[in-house]
């Protein structure tokens, strides 16, 4: 950093002058943003210091300064761990399904809502679909457990149509579907909000023009609405891909059991177990760090790709 400043010596006074002038002009704005910047520094950057323990055999009592350095030991252990491929595969499976089903379903739902002309009905549907989002996850999972039980709602309906009763949460292959469809139920309405907002940004004249050209409603949706919200969709997609390995562990922890471990255990639940249940702070940090780096890489790749293909991107 210092080096670059000395190299650009002629620039330096100019830059500081610009900054000073700008600061004088926008004092209030700087004051306002300083709070946000401070928040990010304190809560997102300072804690990064703690990731050092991924390269140590961390003992809290000895602190970061006093613990032994072990290099990449924990990373190597993780890649050699029997669970590594299992948790990676499960994480990717769940994430992929989430991306292919939950993500488009919100867009589709928003499109449907957009076509509804009766305002009262539209508002009612919206409110009803937002509701599950506000229920605590623990309660949601309690409900899922009851509904999926041997004598639960789904089996009741299923047996009415002649299906055989099964305790669904004990079926490894059903776990991902329960996970995905309960997520749709919980988040569908909430995640469609941003697209509804994007619709209102589309120029009404475009619809009129399309109508004059003889486009029906479906045609209008395809040529006006969808291209209109495409930038939003792309941004949301890029952000979603940035969390591809970070699929929520809370719900997994609340729903899995030994019968479904092989299909349900994901990286974040693995981190939780190692760190908070088995007290392997360093190992758990190493796994989490691997996770973050992988997510970050995916984010950059997705962003670059979208910049090339669609011209809209995060940065």
């Amino acid at each position: 950093m210092e080096k670059s400043i000395t190299l650009n010596k002629p620039l330096k006074p100019k830059l500081s002058k610009i900054l000073k002038d700008d600061f004088r002009r926008n004092k209030v704005k700087y004051a306002m943003i300083s709070v946000i910047v401070l928040y990010y520094i304190l809560f997102y950057y300072v804690p990064m210091y703690g990731t050092i323990i991924a390269f140590q055999d961390f003992v809290p009592r000895k602190g970061i300064m006093g613990s032994n350095w072990v290099g990449f030991k924990h990373f190597i252990n993780f890649f050699n761990d029997l669970s590594f491929w299992k948790v990676l595969k499960n994480t990717l499976t769940l994430s992929f399904l989430d991306l292919c089903i939950c993500f488009p379903s919100a867009i589709l739902f928003a499109l449907f809502l957009n076509e509804i002309r009766c305002r009262t009905f539209k508002k009612t549907v919206q409110t009803i679909t937002y509701l599950p989002h506000f229920i605590s996850l623990v309660v949601i999972c309690g409900m899922i457990k009851e509904f999926c039980g041997y004598n639960g709602l789904f089996n009741y309906i299923g047996s009415f149509f002649g299906a055989e009763r099964v305790s669904m949460l004990q079926q490894p292959n059903m776990f991902k579907w329960i996970f995905i469809f309960s997520k749709i139920w919980q988040e569908l309405g909430w995640s469609s909000i941003i697209y509804l907002a994007a619709f209102s940004g589309i120029n009404e004249e475009l619809y009129e023009a399309a109508e004059i050209d003889g486009a029906g409603r479906i045609r209008q949706t395809l040529v006006v609405t969808l291209p209109g919200i495409l930038p939003t969709v792309v941004i949301m997609l890029v952000l979603r891909i940035g969390q591809i390995l970070g699929i929520g562990h809370e719900k997994v922890l609340l729903l899995y059991n030994p019968a479904t471990y092989e299909k349900a255990d994901v990286i974040m639940s693995f981190v939780f177990r190692k760190g908070l249940e088995e007290f392997n702070w360093s190992y758990s940090t190493a796994v989490n760090m691997f996770n973050s780096i992988a997510n970050f890489t995916f984010l950059i790749l997705a962003n670059t790709a979208s910049k090339k293909l669609t011209e809209s991107s995060l940065w």
Binding site: V46, P47, G50, G63, M65, G66
Partner: peptide, 19 residues
């Protein structure tokens, strides 16, 4: 998040103390 921060800071402090 604040708790985390406190935790981290106290570790720093602790690391020094344990010299």
């Amino acid at each position: 998040a604040m708790l985390c921060l406190v935790l981290i800071l106290s570790q720093v402090a602790c690391g020094k103390k344990d010299a």
